[in-house]
Computed example of a mutant assay.
Amino acid sequence: MKRTHLPLNGLRVLDAAARHLSFTRAADELAVTPAAVGQQIRALEDTLGVVLFRRTTKGLELTPEGEAGLGPLRHGFLQFEESVRAMQAGQSSKSLTIAAPRDLTEKWLLPRLAEIARADGELRFVLVAADQAPDFTEANLDLAVTWGEGPGVHEGEAIESEGMVTVERPGGGAGVAIAWPGSGDDDAGALVRVGDAGLALDAAAQGLGRATVPELLAARDLAVGHVVTVGEPRPSRLGYWLVAPLPQWRQRKVQTLVEALAGLGAD
């Protein structure tokens, strides 16, 4: 149903003028001039086709038409205030929905969310697997982690990393590449082909070969000795990004999470 255009500025002025029965005091409340109040009231009267105020020897008074509309009008303003409070409540919500690739969630995101949650026991997370570009409209996401050259169409911040590393089991693996989509390794010469970098890392830890994976994913396995590096890390034009559309990105809870995740980095 098409909604009637509401002259909200004029209605706000009407409410103030009716409470004070004075254009001057209403102007003081609204931080405008008395002339501006008078103009708004006249414009509202023209729009509604009724007279709202009369000047008498005792001062300004409401007409019966103006009086009849005040109750619903003030109830409506209370409803507006309740609506604003409800919308702002999302800013203080402790629940966040995050989309990320499965391997990144397992190898990097979950340990960091656990650390963040230990600092704030009220936090709640909903995790969504997203190996492709996340759909923020359908999944009701607050934040996503993506792999690429930048944040794409969204706002974003890069997660610091040393690029790509080649890893194998301590003591040496099979000496052949483990291929995964995006690894750049020759599938034909690979002993094992897997679906993502996390599986490639696990295969390397089992001695099935050498895997070239994002350093961010490998950091924890390297730290505990599941794998060792072969050669030096090398820079990559691709990396992981924390991203969200501008409305979500502006939310206080999202910015707090971004700062926490970016601050933890690959440590």
Results as ranks from 00 to 15, higher is better:
residue 28 D to G: 13
residue 48 L to V: 05
residue 47 T to D: 15
residue 65 E to C: 07
residue 65 E to S: 12
residue 32 V to E: 03
residue 63 T to M: 02
residue 56 T to Q: 03
residue 61 E to R: 09
residue 42 R to I: 02
residue 60 L to D: 06
residue 31 A to V: 13
residue 56 T to H: 04
residue 46 D to A: 14
residue 39 Q to F: 13
residue 29 E to N: 11
residue 55 R to S: 14
residue 56 T to R: 07
residue 43 A to F: 04
residue 56 T to S: 15
residue 65 E to P: 00
residue 63 T to K: 04
residue 45 E to G: 06
residue 46 D to F: 08
residue 59 G to D: 05
residue 26 A to F: 04
residue 60 L to Y: 08
residue 55 R to L: 10
residue 33 T to C: 02
residue 28 D to N: 13
residue 62 L to N: 03
residue 59 G to R: 04
residue 50 V to D: 07
residue 30 L to R: 13
residue 31 A to M: 12
residue 50 V to C: 06
residue 37 V to D: 01
residue 34 P to K: 06
residue 58 K to E: 15
residue 60 L to P: 04
residue 52 L to R: 00
residue 63 T to P: 02
residue 47 T to M: 10
residue 33 T to N: 01
residue 47 T to G: 09
residue 49 G to W: 00
residue 26 A to N: 02
residue 52 L to N: 03
residue 40 Q to E: 15
residue 59 G to L: 01
residue 54 R to F: 11
residue 30 L to K: 08
residue 45 E to I: 05
residue 27 A to F: 09
residue 49 G to L: 00
residue 28 D to V: 12
residue 50 V to Q: 10
residue 40 Q to F: 11
residue 58 K to P: 00
residue 26 A to P: 00
residue 31 A to G: 15
residue 42 R to P: 00
residue 62 L to E: 00
residue 57 T to W: 12
residue 38 G to I: 01
residue 44 L to F: 14
residue 48 L to T: 06
residue 29 E to Y: 10
residue 58 K to G: 14
residue 61 E to Y: 08
residue 58 K to L: 15
residue 34 P to S: 09
residue 62 L to Q: 03
residue 45 E to M: 03
residue 43 A to W: 01
residue 28 D to R: 09
residue 54 R to W: 11
residue 42 R to D: 01
residue 52 L to I: 03
residue 64 P to A: 13
residue 27 A to D: 01
residue 64 P to K: 09
residue 39 Q to S: 13
residue 48 L to Y: 09
residue 43 A to G: 10
residue 58 K to Q: 14
residue 47 T to L: 14
residue 42 R to Q: 10
residue 62 L to G: 06
residue 33 T to F: 05
residue 32 V to Q: 05
residue 33 T to W: 04
residue 40 Q to T: 05
residue 34 P to R: 07
residue 28 D to A: 13
residue 64 P to L: 09
residue 32 V to F: 06
residue 59 G to T: 10
residue 61 E to K: 08
residue 35 A to H: 09
residue 64 P to N: 10
residue 31 A to D: 15
residue 37 V to F: 08
residue 53 F to E: 01
residue 54 R to I: 08
residue 65 E to V: 12
residue 32 V to S: 04
residue 37 V to I: 15
residue 41 I to C: 04
residue 54 R to T: 11
residue 43 A to M: 05
residue 53 F to I: 04
residue 47 T to E: 15
residue 46 D to I: 02
residue 63 T to I: 06
residue 48 L to S: 07
residue 49 G to T: 01
residue 36 A to C: 04
residue 34 P to W: 10
residue 62 L to C: 07
